[in-house]
Amino acid sequence: MLHLNKLTKQYATGDKALTDVELQIPKGQVVALIGPSGAGKSTLIRCINRLVEPTSGAVVLNGTELTRLGAGALRKARRRMGMIFQEYALVERLTVMENVLSGRLGYVGFWRSFFRWYPQSDVDEAFRLLERVGLDHMADKRADELSGGQRQRVGIARALIQDPELLLVDEPTASLDPKTSRQIMRLICELCAERGLAAIINIHDVALAQMFVQRVVGLQLGEVVYDGPPDGLSPDILTQIYGEEDWEATIAKVEDDDDDLAEGAVA
């Protein structure tokens, strides 16, 4: 469904962030993208929806070559790719509901969005999603009143209301505590499974990635150095990605604690 073909990004400063990245992701597959800071993980997912313009190579989504699209067509293509951010990137002075509905901006006209006259079907869907992520009762709270985990749930609802085929997830757990991190990862993976979405998840935490995804891609200095199942991440391979370190503690199987989602949502 998504095909990256020799994707290369060189910044104006001359730094090469990505070199000939080759990646195929079929429908419904969740992929974790791991690698040290500065490996180009963020740049890679931003090149897919062209928040960062790739220097060369192609991004093909369902047969559409995204790198060649004009401004209008690019906006249409972006609707099909939901994005979830590190530190949430909610518009803090808008309410939770407005933040969720902002996921529909690509579908409604300017004046409609300006006066917040969204079609009732969008509002219904927004309430359904808020219920699904456990924030139904928070709709009219302002985003900056929420806790970190709650904000990330709003961020997830905003991405899903776009009705995407692909989720681009940039360090979803980087500023969350370990427990909330797992809840958020589980929520994202469950939602992907429910809706048959493909996803690329940038993640620092190797153990967390191994717990939830079927496929891991390791990036080092802008090049893919590993692509395979989570079990295949041996100490040798991790050393190749991150450098020398004692890996046994990291890849030891982590027990999945079974606190349910609703509990976390109220907290």
Binding site: L51, R78, E92, L94, S102, L105, F110, F114, G155, R158
Partner: peptide, 19 residues
Amino acid sequence: KQVEAITATGASRWQVMAY
């Protein structure tokens, strides 16, 4: 970052401004 997030939804220039 907030601007980036709204842009990523496929919003137009004016919508990014307003939201």
